[in-house]
Design a protein around this nucleic acid. Structure first.
Lengths: 205, 205
DNA sequence: TTGAATATTAAACAGTGTTCAATTACATTT
DNA sequence: AAATGTAATTGAACACTGTTTAATATTCAA
């Protein structure tokens, strides 16, 4: 049936329009200051319409957080060309931090904000597949490093978590304004310099 | 003048009542769901009164975040008895994580939420002295470790940031619900196990 | 053209942080 | 004891928020 196809396409188009408007406003003004009415205004529909396409505000921002993971995935594609696991691990850290520093609001939504995780807990199948996929890639890379003889005496799962935490920690302290404590001379490049210190540590493991 | 003394005492008492009510509600229902009206209700005053004691909601929660730092400071007192710098550094990590896991909402307010930092930027002297003091203690401890011959080839400031980031990263991923990605068998104790992996790394530096 | 189904809206609800003119309470002076 | 002046407190209003729902438009098939 061509007509119901077109209908579905139109539904999908409006969904995308909502998401597009939400994204623009989110990157412009942040999560709290992006209201349902703002989004509706921007696409010239009434506010109520959003609730026929999304359960609530959290679902809209969960969809946006998914877009963020797609973006990150694209950036991570180049890692396939890095044969050496330890080099791949380091490159992964660089890409992760680049992504976060170039898209701080997206990073915040993906790894700090509560909205997308709340949506997951509200929906039936409550696993965070976006984060799970990304973390799994890290885990596999570290497993490869261990096969190469690195990280002796360490356990895969907590070590992977530790390494993720290290880069996430730097980035999230920066994004959430906690780098005020850093000495003036070091403040500007603290995340990059911290990453380099981390590489120096990794070189010994 | 006894009377103006008493008046000032009463003003201070009401300030403390506001803060007390805010704290109870915050720990009970979280930041967003603790409203000015909720706080006013609890102390049986009208909502407007809060604005004669605090500039805005952010200032109330900045005051609360200060209480958190005092709490953390008390827990850190025991570190004075740890002579060996490297042992002191490790003990510091344990205490930091204990504090965070026992007071997740306070930790969130101190190191993740935007409210207290926004208040600092709104006020005239905009440095985060609470965080600065705590970070300085970490920096001094690491400096002592370096004097003992540890962390050769590393730079004090970025290294201190890296170490802080590592523990903050683990704790904040946990608090903000990102540990869903961890394998079921490891999930329950991932922060503690991650910390132990970290100690294993420190032992080589 | 009618009838059913779908899409969209407007209005209402119950809240939010914040401001401010009006009111109350109270110590000081007459 | 009454009047005055000051400081503390209130209540109502403003401009918002997310969300629900009954009513209205629109669209397509018979």
């Amino acid at each position: 049936m061509g007509i119901s196809d077109r209908k579905e396409r139109e539904k999908e188009e409006l969904r995308e329009k909502i998401l597009g408007a939400a994204k623009v406003l989110f990157l412009e003004k942040g999560f709290e200051k992006t209201s349902i009415r703002n989004i509706a205004d921007r696409i010239e529909y009434s506010p109520g319409i959003l609730y026929h396409y999304f359960r609530d505000k959290n679902e809209i921002f969960h969809a946006l957080h998914q877009e963020g993971f797609q973006q990150l995935l694209v950036m991570m594609k180049v890692l396939n060309s890095v044969r050496n696991p330890m080099e791949r691990l380091k490159a992964m850290g660089s890409i992760y931090i680049s992504f976060a520093m170039q898209n701080p609001d997206m990073y915040d939504l993906m790894f700090i904000k509560e909205a997308p995780i709340h949506h997951i807990h509200d929906s039936e199948h409550d696993d965070w597949k976006e984060g799970g996929g990304t973390f799994n890639y890290l885990r596999e890379t570290i497993k490869d490093c261990m096969s190469d003889g690195h990280f002796q005496g360490h356990q895969l799962e907590p070590l992977s978590f530790l390494i993720w935490s290290t880069v996430h920690g730097m980035v999230s302290l920066q994004i959430r304004g906690r780098c005020e404590v850093i000495k003036e001379e070091s403040k500007a490049n603290i995340v990059q310099d911290g990453l380099e210190e981390f590489y120096r540590v990794l070189d010994r493991l």
